[in-house]
Simulated scan of single mutants.
Amino acid sequence: MEEALIPVVPMSHTAHIRSHRKPRRSASKIAMRAGVAGGILSTVAVAGASGPANAAEPVTQTLELPTLTADLAAQVAESADATELAAANYELQAERDAAAAQAAKEAKADLAVAKKKAEAKKKAEEAARKAAAERAARDAERVTLAASASASASASASAPSASASASTPSVTAPASGSVGTVIAFLKAQLGDAYVMGATGPNAWDCSSLVQAAFREVGVDLPRVSQDQSMMGTEVSLSNLQPGDILYWGGKGSAYHVGVYIGGGQYLDAANPSKGVVIQDLSGYPASGAVRVL
């Protein structure tokens, strides 16, 4: 076999000059080209070696490197966009679910508040109706008592004098019917409110209630407790009779008054928390008493 002679190409006399050399390729490009070249040379070598044995069959095997086509790049980009859109949709749905849960919670709270307000309004309306009914009943009873007191006064005025020859008598205590009128008036005010300085008809303080009760039978009492404790005749607490005025504190400096109604009880406008009530004298003993009837 004849040996192939490889011609020697003389080197250019300018090859050693840097500015005449081609730009250096990157390492990745060089490696790729080397790989391609190596693959091609290997293919040629295999084909050459098998040439004499298989001269009748041409070599058709080629080596193809995978390439990133435009379609594959578009698919990757589309997949990334779809993933981002799905994440955004999930986030939006989560925000909507949270907002719906918060709205439901607030609606439930608002409903509870509205229900409580409705119940409170209903109770207030019922209390107002009840108070109005009680007030109407007391007013009717007052009218009846006033009519009875007027009738009694007229009868007393028209009655003949027991001793025509006697001189004008001194003021004497009215009949027991007057005491009954006073007590009936006081009981008609039970449940009224206590308000300092009030004089009726639905709110009283202690002395205004006593003053109004005795006015029903024509007895004019002073307005305040201190002066009321100085009226009439002083009586001992062991000799009390219905209609006697009880006072607490010193005579002439009393700070509270009420009226004895019998059975160890008295009626008074007690305080803002109790209003007009009946109480046991044993629970709050009076300092003294006066009798004006």
Rank of each mutant, 00 (worst) to 15 (best):
T233E: 14
G262M: 07
T69L: 15
A45P: 00
A151N: 08
G264T: 03
N271G: 03
W248M: 11
V76D: 09
N54Q: 15
S154H: 02
A184T: 07
K121N: 07
A198N: 00
V59G: 09
V224K: 03
A112M: 11
A53E: 15
A159L: 00
S156E: 01
A101H: 07
V179I: 12
G258R: 03
F185L: 03
V182N: 02
A104R: 12
A188S: 12
Y247H: 12
I17W: 14
E78W: 07
E84H: 05
V219H: 05
V182F: 00
P23Y: 07
F214H: 00
A166Y: 02
L209K: 05
L5T: 13
P10N: 15
V36S: 12
A31L: 13
S28F: 11
M230A: 11
V44S: 11
S165A: 11
L190G: 06
S225N: 00
A70K: 09
Q226G: 04
L221T: 02
E95Y: 03
N202E: 08
M196F: 10
V8M: 08
A101V: 09
Q228N: 06
A120R: 13
A104L: 13
Q241A: 10
A132D: 13
S19F: 10
P160M: 05
A80S: 10
S154F: 01
A149F: 00
E106N: 15
P58L: 15
D268Q: 13
S148I: 02
L72S: 15
G218T: 06
P242R: 14
G38R: 13
D244Q: 10
D81K: 09
T83A: 08
V290M: 03
T199H: 08
T60K: 05
S208Q: 07
S178M: 01
G35H: 09
L5A: 10
K121R: 11
S208C: 06
D220L: 08
E78I: 05
G197E: 05
A47T: 15
R18Q: 11
A127T: 01
Q189W: 00
I183W: 04
P10K: 15
G197C: 05
S12E: 07
N271H: 10
E95N: 01
S208H: 03
L267C: 04
Y260D: 05
A155M: 01
I278P: 01
L92Y: 05
A15S: 14
S150E: 13
A173D: 13
Q93E: 06
Y90F: 06
K116T: 12
R215I: 00
T172R: 13
A213F: 03
D192P: 02
D110E: 10
